[in-house]
Amino acid sequence: MLLKKLKQKSPLIYFICSRIVTMVFLLFFLGFALFGLMELAPGDIVDQMMTQQIMASAEGGPKAGSLAQGQENIFDDAQLAKTREELGLDKPFYVQYFRWLKRVIVDHDLGVSLISRAPVSFLLGSRLMNTLILNLISLVFITLFSFILGVYFSSKAGTRLDVGATFFALFFHAFPGILLLILLQLFASITGLFPVTAYPDFPYSEAPLKFTFSYMHHIFLPLFCSFLGGVGGTMRTIRATMLDQMGMPYIFALRARGISEKRVFLNHAFRNTINPYITGSANLLASLFGGSLILEIIFAYPGVGRLTYEAVLQQDINLVLANSMFLSALVLAGMLISDILLAFVDPRIRYGAEK
């Protein structure tokens, strides 16, 4: 009864609440699936720790031989089992997951990294801002240039310029992003015009102004790659929407009333290109966050994607789960925001309203 009244009085609020509930269930099943997939991986973090200690002792100098011969005594089954029990790895994966979930919900604690023993919240917070800044800058540039180029080339439809722009848009949209990143890094290495890493080698607190300019110089090539990969598809969507709108009956009616072509083009047809972009922006944001994983690995950028990759290699389940869940929550929140914006931009959309 209460939900029905809320749906009648505030359809948008009801829609937001229902989407949030859906997001919670999606995150729950995502975390469950991640735990299950990590369980299927060969070995566990105890094996990783054992391997690291063996390698460290093997590189320790003259005593390496005797240490290597005594590893079987050091890492016996009883000690390994005790270590797994201390870390909670002796339980089935679903028991581990519900323990982690209880700790997060009740104690608001993401746990500690099983490798570094540092709090997961600290590791995530130290990398999160870098990833957000990189992807938000990419989103702003892709949005700005997609609208400018999409609107401009829609006015040049059928010309050689439009055909050439469409060809290059399709080419870079289909070009493998990982290959483009490697080629750009080779370009930076050969020419020396740009750094081969995407982050300055000194902290922001040391020299804020110098760090800002150095940061812009370091991330230029990764941003350029992200821009080329994202602007092609978005520009083509806006161009196609503009051409579709220019053939609508209301456009002929506006022209018949003597309204200038510039006003028809920008004030009326252009406004109707916003809806498809808002709908596709959530997918664009998801692709940016997904692509930043490869970008951060190749250009050694200290972001959440690279942190997640290192955690997966080390099978640090607490770190993997926290990073993956947080990025997934950001993508789901972006989709929710795009749906809400549609209701404000287009008065015809009424979420949850009775028909």
Rank of each mutant, 00 (worst) to 15 (best):
E85W: 01
P195H: 10
F153L: 11
I278M: 13
S154K: 07
A68R: 13
L149I: 11
Q48F: 13
Y199R: 04
Y152F: 15
S292R: 04
I45S: 06
L26N: 04
N267I: 00
D244M: 02
D346C: 06
D109A: 11
F147M: 07
N283A: 12
L180W: 08
S121Q: 01
A329G: 11
G247I: 07
L123M: 14
T22S: 14
V95D: 11
G43Q: 07
T241K: 06
L342Q: 13
S154G: 15
F194D: 01
P119K: 08
D107L: 11
K5E: 02
A157N: 14
Y204E: 13
V151T: 06
M23V: 12
E261G: 12
A286Y: 03
H268L: 00
S113Y: 10
L128K: 09
Q48N: 09
P302M: 08
M235F: 07
S18R: 15
A41H: 04
T191E: 12
I142H: 05
H268I: 01
V304W: 04
I349H: 04
S10Q: 13
V46T: 06
R350K: 12
A78F: 04
R239G: 05
N275K: 12
P347S: 08
F202R: 06
F224S: 09
I74E: 03
I238N: 01
S189P: 02
N73T: 00
I178E: 06
D90F: 05
I297V: 15
Q48Y: 14
L80V: 10
L136G: 03
H108L: 08
Y301N: 03
I105V: 15
E206I: 02
Q185K: 13
Y152Q: 03
L336D: 08
L179P: 00
F252N: 14
E39L: 00
G258K: 13
P203Q: 08
F211G: 07
I182A: 14
A188M: 05
P208T: 10
L170P: 02
L243F: 11
V112A: 11
A207Y: 09
S324C: 09
Y250R: 08
L254G: 09
